[in-house]
Computed example of a mutant assay.
Amino acid sequence: MEISREFLIDFLNIGTFIQFVTALISTIYFKKYNNTILKYFSFILWYTFINEIVGILIVDYYSRFNAIIYNIYHVINFFFLFLIYREFINSNRLKKSIMFFILIYIMSFIINGFYENYLKEFQSIPYIIAASLMITTIILYFSELLNSEKVLNTNKNLLFWISVGLLIFFVGNIPFRIVRNYYTDLEGITILFLINIILTIIMNLCFIIGFIWSDSRQQY
């Protein structure tokens, strides 16, 4: 099923607006988590929104190549997300595993630069590797959470809601990335773009629930 370009653009604008709302709400409820590393998550959300706007403007008014700003964004975003979980996970063994994940991602990003142009091509393989490792990290976090007293208040835990949103997004986004980069001539590719936008909206709605519903006493 093919979806019109106009409909896809309108839906993309909705997704971008939801990102703006999420960043705004994260600022409104900043006091809930400003004494933890999660305080930087608000900055990442604003960076995400601004990056999307800049990416759109580059394509509309300057060049069809805007991959560089997304490649830089993914490095910063993944690095920060890994550090968040390293901070909140208690097991030293798991903390070391997360640092190993970061090393794998950085190495894959550097090596992939010899095969894909950072300026013109999205670094697809490093992204898929990082997303897969992030899914693993979230599962490790959930596993530790289930075996702790904090499981009794998961619905009040901001990182829990962030993790739910990220897990849903990355599980659905990895197949999209593979298809987008290697099967771009596939019929019905637009429906996959639509699904990806829906995943982005769902992820941000989870973030919003977390900011509103969480309790500052449950962030540790």
Score class of each variant (00 low, 15 high):
L103Q: 08
M203N: 14
D10L: 14
L81S: 00
D10V: 12
V179N: 10
D215K: 13
F160L: 04
I56G: 03
L146K: 14
G15Y: 01
N153V: 12
A67P: 08
Y85A: 09
Q218P: 04
Y73Q: 04
I18N: 12
F43R: 05
N66R: 05
T36N: 13
F211K: 04
I102H: 03
I110N: 06
L119N: 05
M99H: 09
F88W: 08
L119E: 11
N155S: 12
F78H: 11
E52F: 10
N181D: 12
L119A: 14
I84D: 02
F49R: 09
T154K: 15
K31I: 01
F142M: 13
I174E: 07
E6R: 11
L57G: 14
I9Q: 10
F49T: 05
I125C: 06
F160H: 07
T154A: 15
Y70C: 12
F65H: 15
N181A: 14
Y115T: 07
L103I: 04
I53R: 12
F169C: 03
I98S: 10
V164A: 10
W213D: 00
I84Y: 00
I28A: 11
Q123I: 06
D185F: 06
L140T: 02
R93I: 14
N204D: 13
Y127P: 02
V59C: 01
M107W: 08
I138A: 10
T136L: 13
N34V: 02
A67H: 06
F109Q: 00
F49I: 01
